[in-house]
């Protein structure tokens, strides 16, 4: 399945029933230098729209919301020591969390790459 996107500039890549979530290149550009990332504990249940992580840039803190319902089954510990990776490789190595989806149907409400590109052009 292809990567999905939210209007809050998160990307969601799905393998089986697990969604890997990160922030988009556009988001990291807007944030500027990332100096700290706070991630949820593995095992935490999240609902779509819950605050799932916090990204701190030099300037300010920004929340990252859960794009789907489910359980956190992985958090990218590398970001604790290397938050700057979010600027370098936001849509690859610097993923934030893996969520085991409880309702894969929620994916239908998310944008595909083409729709996200159109969304960015409208900003």
């Amino acid at each position: 399945m292809s990567t999905r996107y939210t209007e809050d500039h998160e990307w969601i890549a799905v393998e089986g029933d697990v969604a890997t979530v990160g922030i988009t290149n556009y988001a990291q550009e807007q944030l500027g230098d990332v100096v700290f990332v706070e991630l949820p504990e593995v095992g935490r249940k999240v609902s779509k729209g819950d605050e799932a992580a916090v990204v701190e840039s030099v300037k300010a803190a920004s929340e990252v919301y859960a794009p789907l319902d489910g359980e956190v089954v992985g958090a990218n510990d590398m970001l604790a020591d290397e938050p700057g990776k979010v600027n370098e490789d936001p849509e690859g190595a610097a993923w934030f969390v893996k969520i085991k989806m409880s309702d894969a149907g929620q994916l239908e409400g998310l944008m595909d790459a083409a729709a996200y590109k159109t969304h960015l052009e409208g900003l």
Binding site: G32, D33, S57, V58, K59
Partner: peptide, 12 residues
């Protein structure tokens, strides 16, 4: 200007 392309940490 809040920052230029190099970013705040590099400018600092």
């Amino acid at each position: 200007p809040v920052q230029y392309p190099d970013g705040i940490i590099a400018e600092h």
